[in-house]
Amino acid sequence: MSVVENTQAAQIPENWEPKIIAFCCHWCTYTGADLAGLNRMNYPANVRVLRIPCSGRMNPQYVIEALNKGCDGVLVCGCHPGDCHYVTGNYYARRRMMIFKRLLEYEGLEPDRFQVRWISGAEAGKFRDTVMSVVEQVRALGPLNLTREIPQFELPPVPDDDGAFDAVPEEVTA
């Protein structure tokens, strides 16, 4: 694990909570997260779990979009090498994510903000531990310091941000 480069500890606003999105493979980590829930394991609510069919489906664009749209960290989880439901998907993902992670860090993203882990369906404990450590690492880093949108585009703050991933409210669709 790399050393946390805390470049802006002073700027961390009070009551700020990191927002992290976890892309989890349907066949392993997503089930592992489910198992963690069944076992009543506690882990921070800063992580939003998003299911993908396989870590090989993980498009690098999802990561950039997540960071652009307000996430402070991204976690990608897949099956252990050798255990891929589609036999080889995570081998490709492994290469792609190694390259992509280096590229993001090259452009100035702190290494801890983008992490990849192999977590099987039985490893509820590992899921909990991973999430807890990622949340703590990102919390130490503070809000993402990349320019997300030009200032004139910034919308007024949303008072209650917990529903960011809610479905479209009825009054909008009606």
Binding site: I64, E65, N68, E107, L146, T147, R148, E149, I150, F153
Partner: peptide, 8 residues
């Protein structure tokens, strides 16, 4: 045209 979309 902004930094975020250009980075994307």
């Amino acid at each position: 045209n902004n930094v975020a979309e250009n980075r994307f």
